[in-house]
C-alpha cells in the first residue's frame, strides 16, 4: 500500500490517531508526577506494601499457571478427545466474564457460603480476606490468557518433530520437555506476558473475593483506587500508577526478549 494513494494516507492517519490515543494517557501519568512526588509516594508504607504484595501474588499466580497450564495446554492442543472444543470454550470463559461477575463466581464457589467453602475451611484454608484469595482470583482471571496462547503454540508444532523425538527413544515426557516446550517458546512467553500483565492489573475480582486490606489483599491497583478515593490522594495514586506501568512494561519487555530467543543454541556460541 503506497502513501500516495488516498486510502494509504487515510490508513496512515488512522494509525497516527491510534498510537496517539493509546500512548497519551500513559505519557500523562508521568507528566503529571514530579520525581520528587514519586519518591515521596514510594516512601509511604501503604504504597510499598501494595507494590510488594502485587509482585508476590502475581509471581505465585503466574508460576501456578505455568506449572499446571503448560501440560494442560499441551494435552488440549495435541490430543483429540470427545469434548475437546467444549473444553477450549470453557477455558476462554473467564476472558469474557466481567470482573465483578468473576468475583461473585469465586465467592459462590470458594467463599464461606460457597459450594466448596465448607471443604476448603475444613482443610484449614482461608481464602476470603487472605493473600491466598488474591492469588486464587489472579489465577482465575489471568490463566486463560496464558492457556489460549499456549494451546495455539502447541497446536502449531510440527507433528514430525514430536514423532522424530519418539522414534529416537524419547518418551512422551522427554518429548514434551525437550522438543514441544522449546518449539512453543515464543507463544508460551507471549502468553506469559499477557497473563502476568492481566494479573498485575486485576482489580474487580480481587476486591470482591479477597477485599482490600493493606499488606494482605490490597494489591497495587486496589491501592491506587483507595488513594484516589482520598480527597488529596490523587498524586499518590498517580505515583503508584507510574510505578505499575514501569513494572508492567519491564515484564512485557523481558518476557518478549526471552521468547524471541528460542532454541538451545541460538543465543550462545
Amino acid at each position: 500500500m503506497s502513501l500516495g494513494s488516498w486510502f494509504g494516507r487515510i490508513a496512515f492517519l488512522a494509525l497516527a490517531v491510534t498510537l496517539l490515543f493509546l500512548t497519551l494517557p500513559t505519557v500523562a501519568i508521568f507528566a503529571d508526577t514530579t520525581p520528587a512526588q514519586l519518591i515521596a509516594a514510594l516512601g509511604e508504607p501503604v504504597v510499598l506494601d501494595a507494590l510488594w504484595l502485587s509482585l508476590r501474588t502475581t509471581v505465585v499466580a503466574v508460576l501456578v499457571i505455568i506449572v499446571v497450564g503448560t501440560p494442560a495446554a499441551y494435552f488440549l492442543a495435541r490430543r483429540d478427545f470427545p469434548g475437546r472444543s467444549f473444553a477450549l470454550t470453557l477455558i476462554e470463559l473467564p476472558l469474557v466474564m466481567p470482573p465483578a461477575v468473576a468475583g461473585i463466581a469465586l465467592l459462590a464457589a470458594f467463599g464461606p457460603q460457597g459450594i466448596f467453602g465448607v471443604w476448603i475451611s475444613d482443610a484449614g484454608i482461608e481464602l476470603v480476606l487472605q493473600t491466598a484469595g488474591v492469588i486464587v482470583a489472579l489465577i482465575f482471571v489471568a490463566a486463560p490468557f496464558y492457556l489460549r496462547q499456549a494451546v495455539a503454540a502447541f497446536a502449531s508444532l510440527d507433528r514430525g518433530r514430536l514423532e522424530a523425538s519418539r522414534t529416537l527413544g524419547a518418551g512422551p515426557f522427554r518429548t514434551f520437555v525437550s522438543v514441544a516446550v522449546p518449539g512453543a517458546r515464543p507463544g508460551l512467553s507471549s502468553g506469559l506476558a499477557l497473563a502476568w500483565g492481566r494479573a498485575l492489573g486485576e482489580f474487580g475480582a480481587t476486591l470482591m473475593f479477597a477485599g482490600s486490606l493493606q499488606g494482605v489483599t490490597q494489591t497495587a491497583p486496589l491501592a491506587i483506587f483507595s488513594r484516589f478515593s482520598d480527597p488529596d490522594g490523587f498524586t499518590a495514586a498517580l505515583a503508584i500508577s507510574a510505578v505499575l506501568i514501569a513494572v508492567a512494561a519491564l515484564i512485557l519487555l523481558s518476557v518478549k526478549l526471552f521468547g524471541a530467543d528460542r532454541g538451545l543454541d541460538r543465543a550462545g556460541s
Binding site: 514423532e163 522414534t167 528460542r262 532454541g263
Partner: peptide, 22 residues
C-alpha cells in the same frame, strides 16, 4: 510397543530436525 522402544530409524520426509538445536 511404544515408538521409543521399537528402535526404528525413521528418516522423515522433511527430516524433522529439531530447530534451534545444533
Amino acid at each position: 510397543l511404544v515408538p521409543e522402544r521399537r528402535r526404528c530409524g525413521y528418516l522423515f520426509q522433511d527430516y524433522a530436525l529439531f530447530p534451534g538445536m545444533k
